[in-house]
Design a protein around this nucleic acid. Structure first.
Lengths: 253, 253
DNA sequence: CGTAATATTGATAATGATCAAAGGTAGTGG
DNA sequence: CCACTACCTTTGATCATTATCAATATTACG
């Protein structure tokens, strides 16, 4: 399913000034002028069902989006069908910055749940750099933050074993959900299938299922009616072998 | 070894207008005005030996660099010493964009060979966004290109087997060297140790050595006096399972 | 209620990790 | 120029983790 069909246009487009995402702790304060500029740039507000393609691999005219609600993921596929999920996108995340700066998308982006997207014209990205440097800087900042997330995933897949990878992924999503105010009593909505987990972790479906079950039975977390509860976040962080950059001016070894 | 020591300052700082990197096919044309602005921003030209830290993990005041000559790599370490090499940096690449936009470096950057760096003040990055939007856009573009490289590495480490990973890494470096005009008769300078290869591929040193030897004996490439020759680049690309995004509007599966 | 998608489990195979030891190579200093 | 050292590479043997195959629950949904 391709985004460009207009059936999903939502005419009750919310005002950016009143955007609920502005209230979240994770969001920096923006001036009203900037918000008005964003509002003027916004050309659409779209709703898409779970499983929809937001950007398909190779697409050359991908617009720039902001994820207003729901989850999505970026992925890359090999010619034989294997695919790697690169990172997950949560509300407030920028969608398609890389695709709109490069001439063609080197990856796909798919809606994981039903999503709402704010749509901005890629053609005017360059204009924005000229007229709203603070926003352009913010864009670059968001891009760097995404890169940092991918760095973390690459480190996971390259160096951690199955248990550690699951712990790292789960705690990373937990922390992000927490920053958005989506965590209540250590639990948050967790819409991933095990196939998607496997594709993100670089593991087979079967091994993912077994390791997931083992950690669940060991009491690391539980999953009920689509909500994941992390019983001891700090412990999970330690099992994921997180945190080193703060400690060592030079890598240990 | 930390970069900030001034022993490595080189007072014969070359003019940006005459920068040899401007001549390379990979570089877009910039106006003389932009080049003069870059020249004015440039505060130093540094030389560092192989193995030197350019940015260390957690560093908060990392400057922004351009790699003038030599190779470097970005990496992340786990508390127990395992490390993942995230990507390699070749001449003309931006060094430390992520570190200068985020409050602290989430990774380290190390010189792989002796390097020369052009140094720009991180404090003035923001100023540049206001005064030279075209350059700011270029910066964001370079950042996206780096992210795209990491996406590719993550896909490799998550989905490809040892042979395919080696083929993919080797061909990726080959293509980048080619774009810089560093390839002659299918061969280019290749300064990596097997430990660094292993850390980039997410494989053990021993398995890397064995697989590397197997591919060498199978005739994929040869390595003599520090130069790698790829005997059949197209074939190597196919063995790496490269290229799908151009072909499929939707992933096969 | 039936059907398709998703999750679980057991058995076996393959890939890659670890351990250990021995060659190479380059650089240093006598 | 040789000997010494440190680092890097190669190789064989064994072990562990993860993949694959196959069959059976379970859940979600029209």
């Amino acid at each position: 399913m391709i985004v460009s069909s207009s059936n999903h246009r939502n005419h009750r487009s919310p005002s950016c000034l009143a955007c609920p995402l502005r209230l979240k702790p994770a969001f920096k304060d923006k001036s009203d002028e900037e918000i008005r500029f964003i509002q003027a740039m916004k050309i659409d507000h779209r709703q898409l069902p779970a499983g929809a393609d937001i950007i398909h691999p190779g697409q050359e005219d991908a617009e720039l989006y902001t994820l207003f609600s729901g989850w999505a993921f970026r992925y890359k596929s090999l010619p034989d069908g294997r695919r790697q999920i690169l990172n997950f996108l949560l509300p407030g995340d920028l969608v398609g910055l890389q695709a709109s700066l490069l001439s063609a998308a080197q990856h796909g982006i798919e809606a994981l749940t039903e999503v709402e997207l704010c749509v901005f014209p890629r053609r005017r990205t360059y204009e924005m750099f000229g007229r709203m440097p603070a926003l352009a800087y913010e864009l670059a900042w968001l891009g760097s933050r995404e890169e940092s997330l991918i760095d973390e995933n690459l480190t996971s897949v390259g160096q951690r074993n199955a248990q550690e990878r699951i712990a790292a992924l789960v705690i990373s999503l937990y922390r992000r959900a927490e920053a958005l105010g989506l965590v209540a009593e250590n639990s948050f909505a967790f819409p991933l299938t095990q196939q998607q987990l496997a594709d993100a972790l670089g593991l087979s479906l079967v091994h993912t299922s077994k390791t997931w079950a083992r950690l669940r039975k060991a009491g690391m977390f539980s999953l009920e009616r689509g909500r994941l509860t992390i019983h001891n976040p700090r412990l999970t962080e330690r099992m994921a072998l997180l945190f080193e950059s703060e400690l060592h001016p030079r890598p240990l070894i």
